[in-house]
Design a protein around this nucleic acid. Structure first.
Lengths: 213, 213
DNA sequence: AGCAAATGTGAACAGTATTCAGATAAGGCC
DNA sequence: GGCCTTATCTGAATACTGTTCACATTTGCT
C-alpha cells in the first residue's frame, strides 16, 4: 500500500507466552485501525502487531481476515441492538410517533458515533448466511424491532401501506442519512459538524409520513 | 489476497509499443473487475495485465490506484447525470410529483444496474475536493438537479419545510434504498430479484411526503 | 506426572503498490 | 528528410500484504 514509514517494529514483548485474551484484543485493534483510516486499510499483520503477536497467531482465533471483520460487525450489531432496546425503554412518549423518533434517532446516532463499526456492518461479504450466521442473527434482531413499529403504523392506517414496505423505506431512509453523513457529502453540504439539527428535522418528516399514511 | 490460481500470464503482445488509448482501457478494465468481484478486489497489476501492459505503465496516466478509481467514479457521475437529464426530458407528466418520481426511479435504477460504478462513487476518499475536483463537480451537478425540484416543493408548501432539508432527505432515501439493495439486505428480505415493485411502492410514499409537506 | 489440545513462533510463498533508471516511439522544428 | 524533446512503456527493485506450514510452548485434564 502506501509506502509511508510504517513502524515495522517487532511486537511488544509479552511476559507470558500466551496472550490471555487475544481474540478480543484483535477485534479492538481492528476497530481502532478502521476508525483511523478505512476498512480497506486494515491489515492482519498490523492488527497482530498492535496486539503484540506475530502474523500467524490470529489464525488460531479466526478462519481468515474476513472472519475477523465479521466479528467486528457482529459486535457492532450487538451494540446497536442494546442501544435500541434502551432507547425504547427510556422513551417517555411511548405513542407510535414517539417511538419511531426514538428508534430513528438512536439508529443514526449510533452510526455517526461509531462510523468504523457501522461501515463494517454493511458489507456484501456477510451475504452468505451460513458462513456468517452470527452476523445475520444480530442484524435480523434489529430489523425485527423496526417491524414491530411499522406493523402498528400499518394497522393504524387501515393497511393502506403494508408493514414491510414501510419498514424497508424507513430503514433505507435512516441508513441513507447515516451513510451520506459518514461518507462525507452531507457533512460537507450542511457545513455543520453535528448531524443533530438535520436529524431532528428529518425525524419530523419521517413522523409526518408515518402518521399521514 | 486469495491464493487461487490467478492466471499470471504475461500481458498480451501488442504490435505497437504504445497502446493507443491506455487510459480508457484501464478505466474499462477496472470497471469490469469491480463488477465481477468487489472494489476491494481491484489490483492495479491485474488491471494492467488485462490492458496488455506492465504494472508500471498505468502510472503515466494516473497518480496512483486511487486516481484510477476516481476516474471510474467520475465516469459514473457523468453517466448518472446524463440519465437524469434524459429521464426529466422524457417525463410526460411534468408536474412536480411526476418529475420526483422520474428522478427517483432513474437514480435507483442506475445504482442497481451499475452497482460497480455506484459503489465507487461513494467513497470517503473523494472527500478531498482539491485532489478530486472532477469527481466533486460531477457529483454537485446531480445534486443541483434535485435541489431544483425541492425548491418548487418547498415553495408549494409555503416554506414549511426548507428545500435543503427536503433535498437531503430525498437523497438519503433513494441512496439508502439503492445501497441496501446492492449490499444485499433488501434483496434478501424481499426475496425478489428485481427492485422494481419495491421501488414503485417507495415512490408512492415519497410523493406522499412531498405533496403532503 | 504425563499427555492431548490450545495457542504461539518463524520462515516460506505468492501476490500487491509504488518507484526508478533506461528503452522505445511520436510529434514538432529545422 | 534529420534531430531532439516529450510522452509512453519496460524491468527490476523495495517494502508491504494474506495465508500456510512445521515446530515450540503452555494449559488443562486425568
Amino acid at each position: 500500500m502506501t509506502t509511508q514509514g510504517r513502524k515495522t517494529a517487532a511486537p511488544r514483548k509479552r511476559r507470558t507466552y500466551h496472550h490471555g485474551d487475544l481474540r478480543q484484543a484483535l477485534v479492538d485493534a481492528t476497530l481502532a485501525l478502521i476508525a483511523k483510516e478505512d476498512v480497506g486499510a486494515v491489515s492482519l499483520r498490523e492488527v497482530a502487531r498492535r496486539a503484540g503477536v506475530t502474523a500467524a497467531a490470529p489464525y488460531h482465533h479466526f478462519r481468515d481476515k474476513n472472519a475477523l471483520l465479521a466479528a467486528v460487525a457482529e459486535e457492532g450489531y450487538r451494540a446497536l441492538n442494546q442501544r435500541m432496546e434502551e432507547a425504547l425503554a427510556r422513551t417517555r412518549a411511548p405513542d407510535l410517533a414517539g417511538r419511531v423518533r426514538a428508534l430513528g434517532r438512536c439508529y443514526v446516532s449510533f452510526a455517526v458515533e461509531h462510523p468504523a463499526h457501522y461501515r463494517v456492518m454493511f458489507r456484501e461479504e456477510w451475504g452468505d448466511e451460513e458462513k456468517y450466521a452470527a452476523v445475520h442473527e444480530e442484524g435480523m434482531r434489529a430489523f425485527q424491532r423496526l417491524l414491530e413499529l411499522t406493523a402498528e403504523a400499518s394497522a393504524a392506517s387501515g393497511g393502506k401501506v403494508d408493514m414491510e414496505t414501510l419498514a424497508f423505506n424507513i430503514w433505507a431512509w435512516v441508513h441513507g442519512l447515516a451513510s451520506l453523513w459518514n461518507e462525507g457529502p452531507l457533512r460537507k453540504k450542511t457545513g455543520s459538524d453535528s448531524i443533530s439539527p438535520l436529524l431532528e428535522r428529518s425525524l419530523d418528516l419521517l413522523v409526518m409520513l408515518i402518521v399521514g399514511s
